[in-house]
Computed example of a mutant assay.
Amino acid sequence: MTSDVSAFIKSNEFLDAIRKRRSIYALDKDVKASKEEITATIQEAIKLAPSAFNSQSARAIILFGKESEKLWGEGGIVEKAIRKVLPEGQSFDSTAKKLASFNAGVGTILFFEDRSVVEGLQKQFPLYADNFPVWSEHSTGIAQFAVWSALADINVGASLQHYNPLIDEDVRDTFDVPASWKLRAQMPFGNIAEAAGPKEFQPISERVRILG
């Protein structure tokens, strides 16, 4: 890459935000952004995230404080679900530490896809019926990435977790989730107490081909 092109890439604010997005596991509650600013950032990112047929099927619930603790806290939803399937004799210690690290943040985003939207599109466009569930997964991934990057841009750390479907039923009951919303991911967030380590990349020449 020439120096001119390298400088051009480094000046791209969008790419800079993506560079800042990392899986942050060391969280605390000392965030500089306000609850309102964090909420608005999440809402705007989900609003702007593209989706197939402009379906806008992504849904989210933002949990702050005690509500987030219901998910990650000691004796909370995730711990109870994991203990039910934990093989006899296997230690829970490492999992407990992981859950405690999520609980140390200020909140959690629960990401869902609205199946009623997907089913409606399947009926409206039967030719593509088999594709809409796949495109729905694309949509939630894009929404998650958009939120994750937007939070990083305001110096709020996060990571993406997938304890679904183990926790689906308890999440639905605890947070009054509509029946058509399917849980896809959980994103604990908070202040970055410790930055992520260096990230290794595969050679981009092996991942992207250029023709012409």
Rank of each mutant, 00 (worst) to 15 (best):
V5G: 02
V5T: 12
A7H: 04
I9W: 00
K10D: 07
K10E: 13
N12R: 00
E13Q: 09
D16S: 15
A17Y: 06
R19F: 15
K20R: 15
K20W: 14
D28A: 11
K29E: 14
K29Q: 15
K29L: 09
D30R: 13
D30C: 03
I38V: 13
A40C: 05
A40T: 04
T41D: 11
I42R: 06
I42K: 05
E44M: 11
E44K: 15
I46S: 02
A49W: 05
A49I: 06
P50K: 12
P50Y: 05
F53L: 09
F53T: 09
N54V: 02
S55L: 11
A58C: 10
R59M: 07
I62S: 02
I62F: 11
I62A: 05
L63F: 07
F64I: 04
E69D: 14
E69C: 05
E69H: 14
W72F: 08
W72T: 00
G75K: 01
G76L: 14
G76I: 07
I77H: 11
V78L: 02
A81F: 06
A81D: 06
I82K: 11
K84I: 01
K84Q: 15
V85F: 10
V85W: 05
P87F: 11
G89S: 02
S91C: 07
F92L: 07
S94F: 15
T95Q: 15
A96H: 12
K97V: 11
N103A: 14
G105L: 08
V106F: 08
F112Q: 07
D114G: 05
R115M: 14
R115G: 07
S116P: 01
V117F: 12
V118M: 10
V118C: 09
V118G: 00
E119N: 10
Q124S: 15
N131I: 06
F132A: 03
P133T: 02
E137M: 13
T140L: 12
G141A: 08
A146M: 13
A146N: 06
V147L: 05
W148C: 10
S149E: 03
S149F: 01
A150H: 00
A150Q: 01
L151T: 00
L151I: 12
A152H: 07
A152K: 04
A152L: 09
I154A: 04
N155G: 03
N155L: 00
G157C: 05
Q161F: 03
Y163N: 09
P165F: 12
L166D: 14
I167D: 06
I167C: 08
D170T: 15
F175Q: 04
P178Y: 04
A179M: 08
K182P: 01
K182M: 05
M187Y: 02
M187F: 04
P188R: 03
F189V: 09
F189E: 08
E194L: 07
E194I: 02
A196V: 06
E200M: 12
E206N: 12
R207G: 05
V208F: 14
R209K: 15
